[in-house]
């Protein structure tokens, strides 16, 4: 990467009602988001974490962007003073609630992922199961979580040609993330397995099982489970 996204943490303007907080790494963004979520400044109506940023939207009847700017400056600085690299991700993972995702590792791309990673299929599964994962942010579709902490050996660019239809419950990897498709949709990630766990349910409160900060453990499902009609 080059250019401004490499620069020190900064506060970027984002219209009438929002500020975009930019930090140096994914882990900094995660930590900044979790701090803001735990103790939101007055008047905040929306907090949107992403790979290097947290978008903060306020209700200007209750606060001003100037006041928000004052409140977030020290938090941004603090988010940059963490343990380096992997230790930091693990610390974030151990702080949040945990969700266990039972996976049948029979995805159509498992062989391809093994080949590209130079591993056996069993090794791919082992590394996926052993990972200390946590949800960094959501996007793309309601309840679609970008789960960080993927074993670096499994980090692959997304498929050259996205599928027009990926089934709900597909467990996938792409870039440095893994995730579960909450419902049937187009998708370019590599499908390594599937789960029966419903990760997004409109009848549930909150609707998303995998919200940012949630620790995620993938386990191999009993091969017999889910096979009967």
């Amino acid at each position: 990467m080059s250019g401004p996204q490499r620069a020190a943490a900064r506060v970027l303007p984002c219209g009438t009602d929002a500020l975009l907080l930019e930090v140096a790494t994914l882990e900094h963004a995660e930590r900044l988001y979790l701090r803001l979520r735990r103790d939101p400044p007055p008047g905040v109506v929306e907090l949107v974490p992403a790979a290097r940023t947290v978008l903060v939207v306020v209700d200007r009847q209750r606060t001003s962007l100037a006041r928000l700017r004052q409140r977030v400056r020290p938090l941004i600085a603090a988010a940059g003073r963490g343990e380096p690299g992997g230790a930091e991700g693990a610390a974030i993972a151990s702080a949040g609630p945990e969700v266990t995702v039972p996976v049948r590792y029979d995805g159509p791309d498992l062989a391809e992922v093994s080949r590209l990673a130079g591993l056996t299929a069993a090794d791919v599964v082992r590394r996926h199961v052993q990972g200390r994962h946590r949800v960094a942010f959501c996007g793309f579709a309601p309840g679609f979580a970008y789960v960080a902490g993927l074993d670096p050996a499994l980090a692959l660019p997304r498929r050259a040609t996205p599928r027009t239809r990926v089934p709900a419950g597909a467990v996938a990897v792409a870039d440095t993330f893994t995730g579960v498709y909450p419902r049937s949709s187009p998708g370019g990630w590599h499908l390594i397995g599937r789960t029966d766990l419903v990760v997004f349910d409109l009848e549930r409160d909150p609707p998303a099982l995998l919200s940012p900060g949630t620790s995620v453990r993938f386990v191999e499902a009993d091969p017999a489970a889910g096979e009967h009609p």
């Binding site: 996204q5 947290v54 978008l55």
Partner: peptide, 15 residues
Amino acid sequence: RITSELPSEGLVPGG
């Protein structure tokens, strides 16, 4: 001016 890939980030109406 910068042509590298931008990591996805939050959007607002009017953006």
